[in-house]
Design a binder for these strands. Structure first.
Lengths: 214, 214
DNA sequence: TGTAATGTTTACCAATCGGTCAAATTATCT
DNA sequence: AGATAATTTGACCGATTGGTAAACATTACA
């Protein structure tokens, strides 16, 4: 008899590993565009190339799929902020943070949109993670920035709003991609726009924070 | 016999004005949170306090409602950019543009989220408006900024990405409101956060663009 | 005030929704 | 190879979806 996924306590099968991967990949496609409510299991099943009951064999509910997806994305999404080094020098740390976030917007736009969708809906599935782990991480890095400001390495500014502004400006290129393309026109919508954005944003933040030495 | 809304060519009734207003208000509530696909006519009807067929008497389809809503929002949403004055001086123009956009994020967060939802889904209903009127307006203002840069009034920078960065940083406070509140904690989540944001963003952009005179 | 146009509601429809079930198929291991 | 566990599927369920038809109620205007 088949053992439903949730009851598994033993090791996972090869097939389970593979299929769950395929499913989450498809789910990311669908959820990131339509949000949780706007997505259907049938859509995901079709993208995943399997029948709906088969999909539900691996994830017993739509919620479970979304949950698994959010958990995975949330972790990798915070990777750049975790890499933010308190011992590095302000200019290069901020530059590379911007660059890393922009690379993620370029390479993982679906993950960015999934997250954005969740935020727009009021974070019904992840508010605890926001108030817990996310807040802790941001608090820690904000303290680093505050110290930089105190010792005059960068201009005095609110570290939280600084972080918000880096998040928003970089993620914008993933979440509002259609708008960016529409405004820039077809000729400037190639991948080069990420290089232009990086150049502009690094200038904005480095000069805006008064840490240009050259 | 009842004349369906779409067939009306004559003047609108008093009741029509009122009810359409109520409906669009309710639709804004629902669409801005759940997106187009994730919203249901029943939800909107309940919020509007009327029966579903009654609602469908004024807007014959869900699409028609969404359309009417988007059209209205799109216009007012671009008001701050239209007010951007080519003859003003760079610092005060940028400062007041930021301030106006932040005020809109504070006072009309639903409108911002409705727009964000549409972007996340790839702008299936408004791509023409983006490529047409929006692009034209942005092109025009970008030219102003480029001229400022050329005459040395502000630092050399890509005017399009400058506009993108002002859009994203300000709208962030509406679209990612939950996240902002979660990270700032309950004690700093009052309306004062908009003042903090304004102070920070004005500093960032004014200094970042090298136009601080004091 | 009568009447025609406008507005509202109840009952309903086919399609789609998330999810179940039992039977059939396939992989795994001895 | 044979037994057993894991995987897959078609048929189906009740609830919800967007939308309609027609009867009913209300308003505006002569």
């Amino acid at each position: 008899m088949a053992i439903p996924r949730a009851a598994r306590t033993q090791r996972r099968t090869r097939i389970q590993e593979e299929k769950e991967e395929v499913i989450l990949e498809a789910a990311l496609d669908v959820f990131s565009v339509n949000g949780f409510r706007g997505s259907t299991i049938d859509q995901i099943a079709e993208v995943a190339g399997m029948s709906k009951p088969n999909l539900l064999y691996y994830f017993r509910t739509k919620e479970a799929m979304h949950r698994a997806l959010i958990d995975r994305v949330l972790f990798t999404w915070l990777e750049p902020l975790r890499a933010f080094d308190a011992n590095g020098d302000p200019e290069s740390e901020i530059r590379s943070y911007i660059r890393r976030k922009l690379e993620m917007a370029r390479d993982f736009p679906r993950e960015s949109r999934l997250f954005a969708n969740e935020m727009l809906q009021g974070a019904p599935h992840v508010e605890d993670e926001l108030r817990g782990p996310l807040k802790s991480l941001v608090d820690e890095k904000a303290e680093v920035i505050r110290a930089w400001a105190k010792t005059g390495k960068i201009a005095k500014c609110d570290p939280y709003h600084l972080i918000f502004s880096i998040w928003s400006t970089t993620q914008h290129y993933a979440d509002f991609d259609v708008q960016v393309r529409a405004v820039l026109g077809d000729e400037h919508s190639g991948e080069g726009r990420f290089e232009d954005a990086a150049r502009y944003l690094e200038q904005l933040f480095v000069d805006g924070l008064g840490i240009r030495q050259s």
